Amino acid sequence: MAHKTLDEYIDGWAPGAITDVDPLRPEAAALLRDILDAGDDSSSDGTLPPLWHWAYFTTWPAQRALGEDGHPTEGHFLPPLPNRRRMWAGGHVTLHGRLRLNTETTRTGTLTDVQVKHGRSGDMILASVRYDYVQAGTTLISELQNHVYRIGDDDAARPAWGPRPVDYPDSDLPWQFRLTTDQIRLFRLSAVTGNSHRIHYDRPYAEDVEHYPGLVVHGPLLALQMAGLARRHDPALELAEIDYRVLSPVFVGEPVLVTGRPSADTSGAELQVLSQPDTVHAKGTATYRRTMTNH
Rank of each mutant, 00 (worst) to 15 (best):
Q276C: 08
E238Y: 06
Y244Q: 08
L237V: 04
T259M: 09
A236I: 07
S263E: 08
L222C: 08
L222T: 13
L237G: 06
R261Q: 13
A236Y: 11
E241W: 12
E241I: 01
S275F: 06
H233G: 13
R245F: 12
V256K: 08
T266L: 10
Y244E: 04
V246Y: 07
A240P: 12
V250P: 03
V250F: 01
I242N: 04
Q225N: 14
S263D: 13
R231A: 13
P235A: 15
Q276T: 15
P235S: 15
T259D: 05
A240Y: 12
E241N: 07
E270C: 01
D265S: 08
T259R: 10
D265C: 09
M226Y: 04
L271V: 12
Q272Y: 07
L274T: 03
D243C: 10
E254Y: 00
V273F: 03
R232W: 10
I242Y: 05
A264T: 07
V250Y: 01
G228E: 06
P277V: 06
F251Y: 12
S275H: 04
L222M: 13
L247F: 00
P277G: 06
R245Q: 15
I242E: 03
L222F: 02
G260D: 01
R245G: 10
S248A: 11
Q225T: 11
M226I: 02
G260W: 02
A227H: 01
A264G: 09
Q225Y: 14
R231V: 05
A223E: 11
A223G: 08
G260M: 06
A236W: 10
P235K: 15
D265E: 14
V258D: 00
P249K: 03
F251V: 10
A223Y: 06
S263H: 01
S275Y: 07
L237D: 07
L247V: 00
L239Y: 09
R245H: 14
H233T: 13
E254P: 14
V252T: 15
M226A: 03
L239F: 09
H233M: 14
P277Y: 01
E254M: 02
S248P: 02
L224Q: 13
L229D: 08
A230W: 01
V252D: 13
S263Y: 03
P262W: 00
Y244R: 11
L221D: 11
L224S: 13
R232K: 15
R232I: 13
A269T: 11
L237Q: 14
G228L: 05
L274G: 01
L271P: 13
A264I: 00
S267L: 09
R245L: 11
P235Q: 14
T259Y: 01
D265P: 04
E270G: 01
V258G: 02
A227E: 00
P255I: 15
V273N: 00
L271W: 03
G268L: 03
T259N: 08
A230F: 03
R245A: 14
E270M: 03
R231W: 04
D234G: 09
G268F: 00
S267I: 12
G228S: 04
E270R: 04
V256T: 11
Y244S: 08
